[in-house]
Amino acid sequence: MISSRYSARRHGGSLPVGWAVVVAAALAAAGGDARAQKGGDPAKGATPRVAIERRGAVASDASIRLFGAFSTLRIIGWDRDSLVVSGTMPKGWVFDGGLASAPAGLPRGAKFFVEAQSEGYTSGAMLEIHVPLRARVWAKSGSADIEVSGVTGGLDLNIVGGSVTVSSAPRELNIESMDGSVRVLAGAAWLRVKTATGDIDVRGGSEDAGLSSVSGTVRVTGGRYERGKFETVTGDIVYGGEVGYKGSVDLTTHSGRVELRLPPRPNVELDAATVTGTIENSVTSSRPIAGREGRGMELGFSSGTGDTRVVVRSFKGNVELKPR
């Protein structure tokens, strides 16, 4: 029974999963789909793949969950109250799930998973999912490339390796990755990104942003940020965004380089300190002073109206203030 196998993977109790979708999974023979062949293991020759297609009506703000062994996933928000999942996967693998049953009206949730049934493939399922614009999408995989466009609701994306690229501006965006890189091109009202070694590149601004990485680079190069907390251990931090009125941005690193790009006449109250590193200021006339006990450096100034606040903390990473 598919639903019982599905609920065994979840945390907590089960959710009734109804089969309200039209299942039109067409089996395709080996060589039938050029795109499918791309994911096969060359060592095994032409790997048979099968096509996947499921579709159904859902509420405009439906929660959609997708997890398992997919290697590429394109999430596309569209102006329709319906859901379409299509793609291919190696023959013999399992794609399952469905829409949550709704007591009245359109289903408000859908869950799908891909289960690998054999080893040795260089790529798993390659999926494309169309969802209502305001949907909330939750997707998790091992190594995968995820691309998102058009979704303005919520996104919760988790990968180990690969990459995530979000080109729309969702209301809530949470991305977690180990060594996969993350690119957020249009910002999000609420934004959280965490990686271990993957680089983080964010543009577009946010009301509340939290970006952290162990050794990846955190780069914020555009948009307005009302409240931001950007942290690394050894990764560099580059901040070139604007800070909203009365907003604050904290940049913290242990040994990464911090590059703060400010406009020529910034309206900012800056508080920067590095324990053993250096601070260079090429934006204002303020000069850094020696830190505690003559080690490291500190720099503090209020420029213009001083109605925004930037705090920089570093253990041994050097800090540079550069003109934007």
Binding site: G68, E176, M178, S212, V214, H254, V275
Partner: peptide
């Protein structure tokens, strides 16, 4: 040194966070 307290706390937080995320990996992948 309050700066050092902040930096040390931040590193501990990164470790907690990494371990938490790792502990959740195998349950979903």
């Amino acid at each position: 040194n309050a700066t050092l307290v902040d930096l040390l706390s931040a590193s501990y937080q990164r470790k907690l966070d990494l371990l938490r995320r790792t502990s959740e990996l195998s349950s979903r992948i």
